[in-house]
């Protein structure tokens, strides 16, 4: 089976966000594989181990993303692709990201593509379904279980807490939800092997994409931090009095009850 996994490099979840000059400050920040993409990688490896085939991890980004690709290879992916756009494009929206990835994948005949259901930084959840539409294949989002039997695929997906059980077929794109699996940590031998696994790097020119074809449709005009919350009121005194005071405050001051 020919399996692709979309991997996005994102800020570490613990990282504090600093805005300067209208941009999120990246210097010195720790970067990780988007947590949902880790589920996607793990699932891809399990499918390959059960069905045979090859797992290719793919990132659209810059040189720095090689680190996350190597981590995915160390987990057990077979090959990596970096579509390096940092010298060509300033702004990349979800339309552009999906289009560029689709141009790379259109003649690769993937049987199964896995992505995260959302990136914890950009947070739109668009890239997976957009890509499937461009490739003309079906997609299922926020999956928590995947079973493949020939070309028949049975899936459980999370729908706001409910579980939907559905059937579809390959080729298919799925996006991972928490609960799909427990992503493995790269093993030491895995890390050693990953250094020698193939990592292909392509640029827009190699894909015959003109910069005008991928001009962003939307534009970020400002980034800012939420207003700093004033220190809250920690109540004091007898517990029964605190409870009465809290109810009174919620009713009269905050007016939420």
């Amino acid at each position: 089976m020919n399996i692709y996994v979309l991997v996005k490099r994102t800020f570490d979840t613990e990282e504090k966000i600093v805005v300067s000059g209208g941009k999120i400050q990246e210097d010195g920040a720790e970067f990780i594989i988007n947590p949902y993409d880790e589920y996607a990688i793990e699932e891809a490896i399990q499918v390959r181990d059960a069905q045979g085939g090859e797992v290719t991890v793919l990132t659209l980004g810059g040189e720095d993303a090689e680190k996350q690709l190597r981590t995915a290879l160390a987990m057990g992916a077979d090959k990596a692709v970096l579509i390096n756009i940092e010298d060509d494009l300033e702004e990349v929206d979800q339309f552009a990201a999906a289009f560029i990835i689709s141009e790379y994948l259109k003649d690769k005949n993937p049987d199964l593509i896995l992505a995260g259901n959302v990136a914890i930084d950009g947070g739109s959840g668009q890239v997976g379904p957009r890509l499937a539409e461009l490739l003309g294949i079906n997609y299922v989002t926020t999956i928590t279980n995947l079973e493949i039997d020939g070309t028949t695929v049975t899936i459980k997906r999370d729908v706001e807490g409910d579980t939907e059980v559905l059937e579809t077929s390959l080729p298919l794109l799925v996006t991972a939800q928490q609960g799909l699996n427990e992503p493995r940590y790269p093993s030491l031998p895995g890390i050693m092997k990953a250094k020698k696994k193939p990592l292909e790097e392509v640029e827009l020119d190699d894909l015959d994409i003109d910069e005008d074809d991928v001009e962003a449709k939307i534009e970020t005009i400002e980034i800012y931090l939420p207003p700093k919350k004033e220190a809250g009121k920690v109540l004091a005194g007898d517990l029964a009095d605190q409870v009465r005071e809290l109810v009174e405050l919620l009713h009269s001051e905050a007016k939420v009850i």
Binding site: V19, K217, T220, I223
Partner: peptide, 21 residues
């Protein structure tokens, strides 16, 4: 119209405009 949306899991916000279309 300018659209405000949380990014970085609500740790920041961005203002977005649709360029055309």
């Amino acid at each position: 119209a300018v659209y405000i949306r949380p990014i970085y899991s609500g740790k920041a916000f961005e203002k977005v405009k649709v360029k055309n279309g």
